[in-house]
Amino acid sequence: MAGLDSQLDLPKGVSTKVVGKGFDWGRLVRYALLIMFAALVLMPVYVLIVTSFKGVGDADPSRAWAFPKIWTLEPWKTAFVGIGGIPPVGPALGRTLIMVIPAAVISSILGSMNGFVLSRWRFPFANVVFAFILFGMFIPYQAVMVPLYSLVNDLSGIVPRGIPVLIMLHVIYGIPITTLIFRNYYQSVPQELIEASRVDGGGMLRTYFSVVLPISMPSFVVVLIWQFTSAWNDFLFARFFGGNMQTQAPVTVVLQNMATGGTTGSVWGATMAATLLSCLPTLLVYILLGKYFVGGLMSGSVKG
């Protein structure tokens, strides 16, 4: 993970340019293709934005792709007020935020400690323990859903449904990936640093806090973003354990209900506005901290 910031960037001084004469047709074709693909990928975004500013009468199929006749904020207001039986999106956004922040922070701390003892303060069978933990990353959660459903019911006195139980689940099922990312990162920390602290009589915790933690920031950013995004975007756990849609569930549950809950075409505008709102936090993170987001993606490929 050494080149975390620049895994996708060309190393400096490397030229892949083919020496050619005259007009570079290949280049023109490449740019044309790039622009076309970028436009195709952004097409749904166009639909989202345009439709979210269309009034009720404007959402006619014949004008599906056109700009709004009159740009109106009406759908955005509706998204906040709620339509029919569908709850407003505002409180759901707040609840989701309350869920993802502790989920991301706690699982990052656990992952960091695990990564440290699995790579730089090793104990016998550390590799076996690592494999044992890592396995949790690959299982389809459907394979544990039935007993998990009962377990969550049994625990409902201690950990209530909705946000609290979801925090718990995101922390627990986040342990494998966070451990993996930190372990790979710490393996690039020179063992001499650790030994030096050890020779000075530093115990495990002191070495962790005074030597390892201060240089862990890049990994923390990657892991926090990863956990933030995956908890925010989660729908499976949210749907099973989100509890009451009106008062307890995260935003993805509300959104899915808006989309498929028998609503008519007239509220498409509000649904699109709600969708945009629900994407805003993760998109902001992506735009502002994109390189760290990519760092998390890359570590998903196990070898890191």
Partner: peptide
């Protein structure tokens, strides 16, 4: 641009694509 859909939830993507 080409990578951005990864940052969006499948549910949000589903809403637009449903349309």
């Amino acid at each position: 641009v080409l990578l951005f859909p990864m940052a969006v939830s499948s549910v949000a993507a589903g809403v637009v694509w449903r349309w």
